[in-house]
Design a protein around this nucleic acid. Structure first.
Length: 231
DNA sequence: CACCAGATGTGCT
DNA sequence: GCACATCTGGTGT
């Protein structure tokens, strides 16, 4: 029985140059591996979310970090596919995306959850608070922590050492979809149901709707007052 | 299950 | 300057 050869890194990059929303189901079941000085950890992805860029005029994505254009932080999202976009949030967490789409088009898949399939001991050391093996990478910041990723890894190529990405040979299982987690405003609505997960997988993070923030009151400048910059 | 403190980079004003 | 954040873990009901 001939098995089609696994795509090499550049073929994989070609695949990843597609639309993140179409790629999401293919990435479910894929394995991302990171080898560090401390050892290797690999995660089989079970939950991802697509984020698009401002250039998608049909469906500009108000939930995306790129909605208001390029900045120093989101620059990797505008770069070539197959690279990592890692950002820091809530004062103590990192989240990891794999960049999709051709260079110049900002889109990515946020890695929300997975199953640690290699380096469970190291992942446990990195995540001492996890009580069960299924908790090790069950959430975007948990997944980044288990893989040992920080903003220092943002922009690095996920398809070259010390990283590796392997797609599943075929569909990994039934895929469900729904609104994205933690995205406030319209970007978190059913209209942007760009969260995808393997139906019934125990490592998928528990759904939590975005916290509804009462629009913070921004005092209007009193009439007659002017603002000017220090210099 | 609900609620909430934590702690700081980032981008808008 | 300051509000917000693609979240997590702990506590209490």
């Amino acid at each position: 029985m001939d098995v089609p050869p696994a795509p090499d890194a550049e073929q994989l990059r070609g695949i990843l140059s597609g639309d993140a929303r179409d790629l999401a189901p293919q990435l479910l079941g894929a394995v991302l591996r990171h080898e560090s000085r401390d050892g290797a950890v690999a995660v089989r992805l079970t939950e991802v979310e697509a984020y698009m860029g401002p250039e998608d005029s049909l469906h500009p994505d108000p939930g995306s970090h790129t909605y208001r254009g390029p900045t120093a932080r989101n620059a990797p999202m505008f770069g070539p596919p197959g690279h990592l976009y890692v950002y820091f949030t809530y004062g103590m967490h990192h989240c990891t995306n794999i960049v999709c789409g051709p260079a110049g088009a900002a889109s990515a898949l946020l890695l929300r959850a997975g199953e640690v399939v290699e380096g469970v001991e190291l992942a446990r050391l990195r995540r001492p608070t996890s009580k069960h093996r299924s908790d090790l990478a069950s959430g975007p910041a948990r997944l980044a922590k288990a893989l040992g990723l920080t903003t220092a890894d943002s922009g690095r190529d996920a398809l070259a050492p010390p990283f590796a990405l392997v797609l599943p040979p075929g569909p990994a299982g039934d895929v469900s979809s729904g609104p994205r987690v933690g995205v406030s405003g319209a970007g978190g609505s059913e209209e942007y149901a760009w969260r995808f997960w393997l139906t019934g997988d125990p490592t998928v993070s528990r759904y939590k709707p975005a916290v509804q923030r009462p629009r913070k009151h921004r005092p209007a400048p009193a009439p007659g007052t002017a603002r000017f910059h220090q210099r």
